[in-house]
Design a binder for these strands. Structure first.
Lengths: 226, 226
DNA sequence: CGCATCGTTGATCAATTTCAATGCCGGTGG
DNA sequence: CCACCGGCATTGAAATTGATCAACGATGCG
């Protein structure tokens, strides 16, 4: 169905960079390359690490037996993903483009003994994640497709947008079907809505993956109910 | 719109029970009654505590300027709610029935010095919360209303259901509009779907708030896409 | 008893899903 | 070099679903 020939990232060449904490306690920072399509972990895997995204984008998804999929989050640079519940991961995680993560031992999250700063930072990241998921709820609960897509584009622009003359350029690295599964829509509806935004002059598409936001205010207006 | 004459719980008679931790460090456990309709905190309030639900049900909601509301979570007994992002609460929280919470200082969450066990327990609760929100996503992303409601009833049955002869009895303490705002539906659709389940013999309604699940397997089947 | 709030049901309508076809592009192999 | 193929994106037309608007019933409370 959405099968991306997933091979594990374990096979990748990880860049190990042992690092010594200020207090002199050794922590292991494992920089890891994840090629596009490779997965970092799958639902049910034992959670050994949490991952701080450095570059690229991760995709966190839950898949039901019947094949339906919900994108739980996109892991953008700066995000920490892979928070465990119990000992296991509860989502699949793969890279939608070449990605670099910094792997932190799960113990660093659960135990403050090793590295107090890191522990605190990871915990704050978990709390931020809760807040981000609440934002995601607001997007999902929007009644209309246009509101969802507009909100999504704005969030993405805010997180990863590049100034582009007077406009903002956004890289839509994820596939349409990913956006659809993130927002609870179908691929077709995502396409049509984006097309409509284009026809209305709110955005321009260079390629399908390259969006130029031409009228930020108008787009913000579309993100709100009529 | 959904104005429940909200008066603050601060006015309530809290039951203060100072408690001494095993290690001899003093922690303050503040048992607090929250009457139905009273709020514990509002979005934007400074987050001083996180709350462990002992009895009753809390309602966590985000409200947009335009009045639309998303129920972010229901706080059932055993849940910890009110995880802050930054220094502030990012949801409103009120009780949908008389509720008792145990308030923990936010410092207990962020700092392990005071009480290591408590700190760890609260952090695990935050991680569990992330997982629960992912479950909520699956519910929201269901394409059909029947799937959402069936999933919701099953989750509630799992958390709070009472064996009732061969059946399971569930207390739907929340209003229909709460369920609707939780699942991204309208009140009318919630009603109609529940009625349909009743007509199909999956459930029986004693009162509007009292559901008897008569055919658990059939209900599970409805929670999946056709 | 009357009012207010909540729950239920009905009819209509707009929106999205669904099904189907076509276009687009990069990669691959002859 | 070019034709073909596969995956993804886009567009069209039809069908379905849930939202909306409206009315009515039930329940609890002063």
């Amino acid at each position: 169905m959405y099968l991306t020939l997933a091979t594990t990232a374990e096979a990748d060449d990880g860049i190990v960079q042992p690092d010594f904490h200020a207090r002199g306690q050794q922590t292991h920072k494992l920089y890891q390359r994840v090629q596009s399509g490779r997965h970092l972990f799958l639902e049910g895997d034992e959670a050994r690490h949490v991952y701080e995204v450095q570059r690229g984008i991760l995709r966190l998804a839950r898949v039901m037996e019947n094949g339906r999929r919900q994108i739980v989050a996109f892991g953008l640079p700066g995000d920490v993903v892979g928070f465990p519940a119990g000992d296991l991961h509860h989502t699949d995680c793969d890279a939608i483009c070449d990605t670099v993560v910094l792997a932190h031992s799960r113990r660093a999250l659960e135990n403050s003994d090793m590295d107090r700063d890191l522990h605190h930072r990871l915990m704050q990241a978990a709390l931020k994640e809760i807040c981000a998921m609440q934002d995601h709820f607001m997007m999902l609960s929007s009644r209309s497709a246009a509101e969802k897509i507009a909100s999504f584009l704005l969030t993405l622009a805010d997180r990863t947008g590049q100034a582009c003359g007077p406009y903002v350029s956004v890289d839509l690295a994820m596939r349409r079907v990913d956006i659809a599964d993130f927002l609870g829509l179908t691929t077709e509806t995502v396409c049509r809505t984006i097309t409509q935004f284009r026809k209305d002059g709110l955005i321009a598409l260079d390629t399908a993956q390259k969006v130029i936001i031409r009228d930020l205010d108008a787009l913000r207006h579309r993100a709100e109910p009529a």
